[in-house]
Simulated assay, not measured.
Amino acid sequence: MSIQPRISVIGAGIAGLTAAITAAECGSRVTVFESRLTPGGNARTANGPYRTNQGPHALYSSGPHWTWLTQRDLIGPLAPFPPHEAARLRFHRGGVLRRTPPLALLRLLSRKPADAPVDTDFLTWAAGHVGETGARAAAHYSAVALFHHDPGSLSAAFVHQRLRRAAAFPPEVHHVRGGWGAMIERMVARAWDLGVRIETGARVDTLPEDGPVIVATSLSSARRLLDDLTLHAECGRTALFDLALRTRRGDAFAVSDLDAPGRIERFTAQDPTLAPAGEQLLQGHFPLSPAQSRAEGTARAEHLLDLGFPGWRERTTWRRDSLSNGRTGAVDRPGTTWRDRPRIDRGNGVYLAGDQVAAPGVLSEVSFTSALEAATLAVRALKLDPKCA
């Protein structure tokens, strides 16, 4: 009796684990290869007293990712948003902090998704409705779901979708209690229960030849592994800023920069488990142009801290600055959509998954959607359970 071919998954981040679980649920034998010593990829949460992710991480409840995770009880406890913190949301506009967003932002949020064209840049389209000043403020606010230094230059349809979802009320954004690492642990456990073999510390330099392969790595890693120079998609470059402070009454919940793309949020306002008692954990992201340095992003972060978190320097107990390059998802220029990114099916039983490939969604939803499609195609190639194809 012949042994059933195995589906190999390269990478154990959100995309790789989603693909592995999906394929295993359809009856496939699956092996996941992860070069790091622990699964999770960019969704890992640091161990120790300060439970930071690699940049702010959130789930959007209206997307298919949310439904898939919920059906499998993989999200776990959420960190609920305290209603009183809404009064501590601040907007940096005109060099000062304000308590209310500009009317132009609210007017753009009321526009229907179909109103925003694919072929026009967001700044031009939005300025036609609310004027250039309001359009720039809205573009900068949208960076919370874009991580790009110039959102106004991107496709109006692309930016407007993210603006509406990031600013939706009631909020679509939810945070996993304990950080995304807790959700990753549940996904790993689910994969093991289904018989998936996960090999960590296993760097793959050549593709396995005993069945379909799903490459769920960064696009740059996939480019090297597949020796395919066409695998390219534009994405953001962002200064990340993590800070722990001794608790002080009156600190802002979040400061959104409307003069330039950037945001700082006090994550322990929702989830006190992320830092020791008596301390609060802040995370910020400040998109950078190719010509800007990490130090420039850090300077912008410190300016917002001066305004929204008085005395923060004297209260600091821990700090980390870093740079995220090529890990923030693809962006769409005017005239393009997600369909113009590298396709999932690469031929010869090789499939791509990740946040920069041809799949719809916002941020991690692209990884999920592409992983689901890649796993479905791989299972179909093996002629397994037709219900999964």
Rank of each mutant, 00 (worst) to 15 (best):
R44W: 10
H57S: 07
Q356F: 00
A299S: 13
L245F: 12
A135G: 12
L194T: 08
G329K: 08
W312L: 04
A167W: 10
T200P: 04
A252C: 14
Y351Q: 02
E296L: 12
I75H: 03
A353Q: 04
L243G: 04
R51T: 04
P83F: 15
L229T: 14
F368H: 15
L106R: 10
W318R: 09
L281I: 10
L377I: 03
I344S: 07
S153R: 06
R341C: 01
T70V: 03
D340C: 03
F368P: 01
A381V: 07
D115W: 02
R313I: 13
P80Q: 07
G152T: 00
S62W: 01
T206R: 15
S155A: 14
A135E: 01
E132T: 14
R36C: 00
T124W: 00
G349H: 07
V130I: 14
D119M: 00
L78N: 04
L89T: 12
L323K: 03
D385C: 12
A260R: 15
A254Y: 00
R197S: 15
H175V: 12
A116Q: 01
L106Y: 00
R186Q: 09
L281D: 02
S35Q: 15
P310D: 06
R263F: 02
R164H: 02
V118I: 15
M183P: 05
T337P: 02
H148Y: 15
A252K: 08
C26W: 10
D259G: 07
F158D: 00
D385T: 11
P170H: 15
P170G: 08
A252I: 05
A58S: 13
A260N: 06
P77T: 04
R98V: 02
L372C: 02
G13K: 03
R327D: 06
R237N: 01
L69V: 11
P261I: 08
Q270F: 02
S155P: 09
P80T: 10
D321Q: 13
W66Q: 12
P83D: 07
R162H: 11
A260C: 03
R313L: 09
D121F: 00
L305N: 02
P83H: 14
W66G: 11
T337N: 04
H140F: 11
A353V: 08
R107W: 02
A353I: 02
T18W: 07
T206A: 14
D73T: 12
T217D: 04
G284V: 12
G347S: 06
G76F: 04
W192R: 15
G128D: 09
Q161P: 00
R197I: 15
P56I: 15
A143D: 06
Q4D: 12
R294H: 08
A260Y: 14
A239G: 09
Q356N: 10
S28E: 11
E296Y: 05
P261F: 11
D150M: 01
V9E: 05
A58V: 15
D251W: 14
L352V: 08
A378S: 09
E234S: 10
P171R: 13
F267M: 14
C388Q: 07
A104H: 01
G326V: 05
T31H: 05
L109Y: 01
E234W: 00
W66R: 13
A239P: 02
R93W: 07
H84M: 03
G95Q: 12
L304W: 08
